[in-house]
Each structure stands twice: as C-alpha cells, then as structure tokens.
Amino acid sequence: MVRERAERGGEATPSQPSSGLNIAEIRQLISLMESSDIDEISVERESEGLKLVLRRPAPSSGALLEDDEDFGEDDFAADAEKSKSTAVEVGAPLVGVFRASMKNDKPLVAPGDIVREGQIIAAIEALNVLNEVEASVAGRITDILVTDGQPVEYGQTLLVIEPA
C-alpha cells in the first residue's frame, strides 16, 4: 500500500527530524526541484549541524548504470555486460501509483518494445493527476520493474531501456 510515512501515536503534525528541517519543508524543496530545471539543492545550517543535499536522481535524467564488473570471456557474457553497461533506468518522477496505461486498457509498453525518445511509456498518478513518464532515450524496453497499480517512491526505477 502507499506509505510515504507512517507514524504511531497521537501526533497531530509530522514528526520533526533532528536536522531542523521538517518533512513538509523537505517536500517543498522536492516540489521546487521537480518544477524547475534545478538538479541539486543544498541546505546548510552550521549552527544546527545540518547539511542536506537533494539531488535529482540519476535514473530520471537518463544516466547510465555504472559498470562495476569485468567483462566475461565469451561473447554472450560480453554482450550481457555491454547491455548492462549501457542500460538506462527510468525513475519515478514523484511519489504515487504506477499506471501502465493512461486509459486502463492495453499497457503503453511491454518488454521488447522499441521506443523513441520522449515517447510516453507509463504514468504516475498522485492526487488524481496523471503524470506521464517519457522514455529518456530511444531504445528497447528490457525490463519493467513495477506492476500496474503499484505504489512507487520518488526516483524508484520503473523501467529499463537498452539504448538503440
């Protein structure tokens, strides 16, 4: 189920982290970043010993997965490694529920589908708003890591694309 935050007890307001910034303020900063071209927001309060850095996650901007393994000896292993090294993860742009289609019918994409850059490949629903998720690169869908109706967190990997 959706659970951005669950707390026990009778508090009327969200709990305050020890950092001095409350959850609402952090959410506002995230909203600000989502609605702008800002890639990173840094907050420092030396007197409180606070240092907070919000950085746009690599998956949603189409960054490459890190290749931290050696290539294998045979062609298959090399191909697999090559695929992994170039695969692009598409992350959730916000917290909400994953929608595989916009009209509750056929999913927009399936593993193996070829997509073009900017193509609508899914949606995240929050507060009755359908936020379209676009392919950050042209290529082939190799994996869909969430199912229709599944709650997702900000930046959570939704799909993987092997660039063309």
Binding site: V2, A6, R8, G96, N128
Partner: peptide, 11 residues
C-alpha cells in the same frame, strides 16, 4: 484504526 497516521497520495 491501529493509531498510525498514513500519508496518502492516491485512491
């Protein structure tokens, strides 16, 4: 009902 407070964005 169990006393926990949940933040919900959809439903």
């Amino acid at each position: 009902n169990d006393g926990t407070r949940q933040t919900v964005t959809w439903g």
